[in-house]
Nucleic acid binder design. Sequence first.
DNA 1: CGTCGTATTGATCTAGTTCAAGTACAGTGG
DNA 2: CCACTGTACTTGAACTAGATCAATACGACG
Lengths: 221, 221
Amino acid sequence: MAIHECVQLVPIFQELAEPQLDTIESIVRHHHYQAGETIFSADDPLDQLMIVSAGQVKVYQLAANGREQLLYLLQSGEIDGEAALFENQRRTSFGEALVPTDVCSIRREDFQNLMQQYPSISINVLNVFGKRLTQLERQTTSTATESVEARLANYLTETAASLNTNTFKLPLKKKDLATFLGTTPETISRKLTRFEQLGLITQKAGKVIQINDADQLLLTE
Amino acid sequence: MAIHECVQLVPIFQELAEPQLDTIESIVRHHHYQAGETIFSADDPLDQLMIVSAGQVKVYQLAANGREQLLYLLQSGEIDGEAALFENQRRTSFGEALVPTDVCSIRREDFQNLMQQYPSISINVLNVFGKRLTQLERQTTSTATESVEARLANYLTETAASLNTNTFKLPLKKKDLATFLGTTPETISRKLTRFEQLGLITQKAGKVIQINDADQLLLTE
DNA sequence: CGTCGTATTGATCTAGTTCAAGTACAGTGG
DNA sequence: CCACTGTACTTGAACTAGATCAATACGACG
């Protein structure tokens, strides 16, 4: 394992110099999870900041009727648990490793001390928060007001854009993608087939999708 | 107008002493808006923190298809605009005064200085952020996975609980409530009638609702 | 090569939207 | 104080997107 493996890749610690990163590294704890393993559950006491150093973590909630809603897909370098860094709260969501995943955590108290010492950290945390809030606002608006077809079209073009390519592998199982978009796997299947029939995309083997006409795709109502 | 009218009622400035509040007050700008007036729009440059000192502000987004989604209802003491306090961004939502409303604003630069001087402010901002994030996560989950009936039932009991009474006036027009819950005014009407027929609530004149059986209401699927 | 989880496809069903028409109601001006 | 007007709300009837249920097909992996 490389030195600073988590610490150095986390945006919230950028702008800190080597010796400071060393200090942080020394108070961090490392964990490894296998694919499918639960990292945290709703109702767990929330007293640590979690950093994904490698792998992929699915963060989801359960509704009263037991249905699952995927909220975030944390990639390496992303953090979770900020929501209650200063208050005693409990988690409201579940975290599950989708692939073998390395995670480090910092205890609340230690993190608070860090923030006192290096104010730039809190500014970075605020930024991360802000982005997440904006993203979630968009997600809320779109699940509440747009058709499944439009949401899926959006998701495909956004994913392609962020990967800078027209051909990419879906990073999620259809089941998870379905809960992310607030629908069912069956509907996803059907809509993808429909997009293909319209010539907007091409489905290749192994969850690989090629987008043929992003503009037209976005016009989907 | 009372001295410190905005500043003193904002949770993010709590723990600060009088002279500090004076300083803050001196850099704040005041505005008044009439009911129905637009306070900000999507795409506006976001360079101020906004504080609602009196009144009520509806914050909403527009989806691609033009439909409106209500995100927050800001009450006096609440703030908005934190999302981009440190980055140049543009607004993604609209703000509209629902009743005559007083607002004060602080320029980004001034606020950043404040945070440097009084670190407790940034901690308070983090907390506000965190709460909003948690609330929005719940809203996302529930619009995406629960029936309109369940969401409405939830909204009614939560509102009642937060006001500490069983009889209350809906703080929103049905039209706005509908976009908040991700549905239509017609559906709200019908569901309320249904709840009344089931004896779970009683509808009185002028948007006043009395909850008769909160427990049963929550069991609505 | 069989087995288990995942994906597709088809048929049916329903919650909620949409459109349209009518009603209550608050505010304004005479 | 009442009539007038515009907005909000309700109710009904028809329609549809998408969920659900069930059966089948696929594909990865031991």
